[in-house]
Simulated scan of single mutants.
Amino acid sequence: MIRVLIVDDEALVRTGLRMILEAVDDIEVVAEADNGAEAITAVARHRPHVVLMDVRMPRMDGVTALREINRYENPPKVVMLTTFDRDEYVHSALRAKAVGFLLKDTAPRDLITAVRTTADGSAVLAPTVTKRLIDAFAGQHSPDAPAARKRLAVLTAREQHVVHAVARGLANAEIARELDMSETTVKAHVSRSLAKLGLTNRVQLALLVRDAG
Rank of each mutant, 00 (worst) to 15 (best):
55 V>I: 05
78 V>K: 02
79 V>I: 15
117 T>I: 12
70 N>D: 07
85 D>V: 04
121 G>N: 11
67 R>F: 03
95 R>I: 15
91 H>R: 13
119 A>D: 10
111 L>P: 12
98 A>L: 15
91 H>M: 14
117 T>D: 03
80 M>G: 12
76 P>T: 05
117 T>E: 05
68 E>Y: 01
113 T>S: 12
58 P>T: 07
94 L>A: 06
69 I>G: 03
68 E>N: 02
118 T>F: 11
63 V>T: 09
92 S>D: 14
87 D>H: 05
75 P>V: 02
82 T>Y: 01
107 A>T: 09
87 D>Y: 05
93 A>V: 12
114 A>I: 11
55 V>R: 01
88 E>S: 07
105 D>V: 06
83 T>E: 10
64 T>C: 04
121 G>Y: 13
57 M>D: 05
113 T>V: 07
88 E>D: 10
97 K>Q: 15
55 V>Q: 01
106 T>M: 12
92 S>R: 14
84 F>D: 03
77 K>Y: 08
101 F>R: 07
101 F>N: 14
115 V>N: 15
59 R>S: 08
91 H>Q: 13
104 K>D: 02
78 V>E: 01
77 K>F: 01
109 R>G: 00
71 R>H: 06
96 A>Y: 04
96 A>N: 08
116 R>V: 15
69 I>Q: 08
77 K>N: 06
80 M>L: 13
63 V>N: 02
111 L>Y: 10
69 I>S: 06
112 I>H: 03
61 D>N: 04
68 E>W: 04
86 R>F: 03
102 L>H: 13
120 D>T: 00
80 M>W: 04
89 Y>F: 13
101 F>A: 09
83 T>P: 01
57 M>C: 04
101 F>K: 11
105 D>S: 05
101 F>V: 09
110 D>Q: 14
67 R>T: 14
86 R>I: 06
72 Y>T: 04
106 T>V: 13
74 N>H: 14
119 A>P: 09
76 P>D: 08
121 G>V: 03
69 I>K: 00
117 T>R: 09
88 E>A: 03
83 T>N: 05
75 P>D: 10
66 L>C: 03
109 R>V: 15
86 R>A: 08
92 S>N: 09
107 A>R: 12
109 R>P: 00
76 P>F: 04
94 L>C: 06
77 K>E: 12
102 L>I: 10
76 P>Y: 04
94 L>G: 04
56 R>Y: 01
102 L>M: 13
62 G>P: 07
66 L>D: 05
97 K>L: 15
72 Y>N: 01
117 T>W: 13
77 K>P: 03
63 V>D: 00
77 K>D: 07
91 H>N: 13
76 P>V: 11
64 T>E: 07
70 N>A: 09
70 N>W: 05
120 D>N: 11
93 A>C: 12
86 R>T: 06
78 V>A: 00
76 P>R: 12
63 V>P: 02
64 T>P: 02
100 G>K: 14
112 I>C: 14
81 L>G: 04
71 R>T: 12
55 V>T: 08
75 P>I: 06
63 V>Q: 00
71 R>V: 15
114 A>P: 10
80 M>H: 03
72 Y>S: 06
71 R>N: 09
79 V>K: 07
120 D>Q: 12
119 A>Q: 15
67 R>V: 15
121 G>M: 10
63 V>C: 00
77 K>S: 07
108 P>V: 01
104 K>V: 01
